[in-house]
Amino acid sequence: MSWLDFFKARKPEPASASQAKERLQIVLAHERIGRTREDFLPKLQQEIVAVVARYVAIDPGRVNVSLDRGGDMSTLAIEIEMPGPQQNRPRHAAAS
């Protein structure tokens, strides 16, 4: 920091352009893959829910898919709400 910055009366902030570049690199890397391949997430989710539904009466509306794309690694989390032991009856599965 030069002595001139002292007079600018603004707290020094990390340059935001480097954040812009990093964010773009990550999101574009993922989008470019997506252009050459069909979006598989909808199907993946359907199939996972179908498999789970074979064993437990679940409400397909209570499935939550979350994703965090990263540079080296992404995390895909599929959260399926399962009924408690007393409620494992079709009654719950019918609720939307």
Partner: peptide, 9 residues
């Protein structure tokens, strides 16, 4: 909005 990494659907 800064949520681009979390878009699924």
């Amino acid at each position: 909005m800064g949520v681009e990494r979390r878009v699924v659907f």
